[in-house]
Structure formats: structure tokens, C-alpha cells
Design a protein around this nucleic acid. Structure first.
Lengths: 121, 121
DNA sequence: GCATTGTATGCCTATATCGGCATGTGCCAA
DNA sequence: TTGGCACATGCCGATATAGGCATACAATGC
């Protein structure tokens, strides 16, 4: 088996740095392919291909205007990612809080796993 | 060129669903490899390999206890991801706000890109 | 020392990616 | 209609992955 398809989900789609760059550019408003190409100094076919991936996972939407295609971000699609990370954000805030209280020694006071009897889902 | 290494950054590391599963399990506390294996019903070598990737990007830390290795999450490492998504969270909140105000017609009032003169970084 | 448990690694295959380059397709202009 | 601009696609090569299986390594217990 190989790596999961880039279009499998949002996580895979944004793994590629250039794809994130493109999204970031689109953050500043709807843009045509050519504009992205110029702004990022990436070849046009490359941009088009990345846009296709982003499009397939719904991260961008396209609108044709004349012979141009204007792409825009659909930020809501990043929600799964946001929600997933949120859990961990809680964790690191907790840790910082504890560190404030006890000045960071018992960093693992209760975290110590008691190696559950295997099978307890 | 192929896809970026899974160990290139946190984004690539968490692209793999099983890796996220492992992190989620570790969310509930430090766990030994065997515990993860049992909980996720994934082969041991697989788990070990995923842990290695997670380890290389700093998402988990390891501590040897006897012949066991206890892994724990280092949630702070997800910060880049969190920060990146945060921008988009703002965006979708804005949109919802606007929708509240104007009942969603002028969804693109100002978003309209004015196709900057090409070259303006 | 020796057998056993708990993990990490190595090797191999199938698969899919990213990027380059050339070319197809669609729309506009003269 | 012909030319040309804006994008999308197709094909190719190099690369690296995920997972299976067997095995090496480490620590423990007898």
C-alpha cells in the first residue's frame, strides 16, 4: 500500500506546502490562476494541478469569468482539521497552567499510564 | 520529485490517518507500544513505524521503562498547525457574521480580487 | 546461560505522488 | 476564420511511502 491519496481528505491535501501557499494567497481574496502563478513563482501547470487537488477536497471553489478562472477558499472545509487540533490545544494549555502552578516538576503526575489490562477499548 | 517526506513537517506527519489515531490514543495518557497495538488493532511493526515518524517530527516522546517504551504526546508541536488553521477560522467566522447581518447575498462584496498588477509581492 | 517478552528494523512490492514539458480545450478579439 | 491568451491535462521519471513478514535487539526471569 502506498501513501493515502492527496485527495483522500483535507489532511492529506494540505500536507503539501505549496498547496498551503496557494490557500494563503487566496486568503487575500479570489484570484485567477495566472495571478497565483505570478505571486508564487510556480509554473502554471503546477498551480493548476494543486488547485485541482484542493478543489477535489472542497478547499477551493472555482468560478469562470471569460477565459479566466477565479478561485476562492472555502475556509469551512478546514473545520475537521481545526477540530482535531483543538483537542491538543487544550492539552498544551493545561500543561502551561500546571507549570504556572507548580513550576514544572510534576509534569507527569497523573499522566503516568497505568497500562490498562489490554482490551479495555 | 515525489511527495514530501512524511517527516518533513507536522503537516505531512499527521496526514496519515493511523498516525492521528495513535496520537488520539496517546491523548489519554502515556502508553506502551503494545497497548497501542491492542487498542487500535494494528500490527506491531506498523505501530512502531508510525511512532518513529511521529517521533522524528517531535509529536511524541519516548521513555524506556524496562523492556517497554512509553510514548506520550507533545501537543505543543501541533502549534504550527493550529496557528495555520487559525487564520481560516477567522475567515469562516467572518462569513457567518456577515451572513447574520445581510442574510447572505453579498457574500463576495469586497472579496472580489482586483487582480493586482502582477509583481506586487 | 537460555528462553521469552516487548520493540525496532530490514527487505520487498504495489502504488501514487510531484514536477517538467508538450499539448489539448475554451473563450475572446480582429 | 484565424490568432492568441488562460488554463487544464496527459505522459514520463524519480522518489518514497505503507504494510507484510521475518528477524535483530534489548531487558527480564529462571
Amino acid at each position: 500500500m502506498a501513501r493515502a491519496a492527496t485527495t483522500a481528505d483535507v489532511f492529506n491535501a494540505i500536507a503539501e506546502a505549496h498547496r498551503r501557499d496557494i490557500l494563503d494567497v487566496l486568503t487575500r481574496g479570489e484570484k485567477a490562476v495566472g495571478a497565483i502563478v505570478d505571486e508564487l513563482a510556480i509554473s502554471q501547470p503546477r498551480v493548476s494541478k494543486h488547485l485541482r487537488v484542493l478543489s477535489e477536497v472542497g478547499l477551493v471553489r472555482c468560478r469562470a469569468v471569460g477565459r479566466r478562472r477565479l478561485y476562492r477558499v472555502d475556509p469551512a472545509r478546514l473545520r475537521p482539521l481545526h477540530d482535531w487540533v483543538a483537542k491538543y490545544e487544550l492539552m498544551w494549555n493545561e500543561r502551561l497552567d500546571r507549570r504556572d502552578d507548580h513550576l514544572g516538576d510534576l509534569q507527569r503526575e497523573r499522566t503516568e499510564s497505568d497500562q490498562q489490562p489490554r482490551g479495555a477499548s
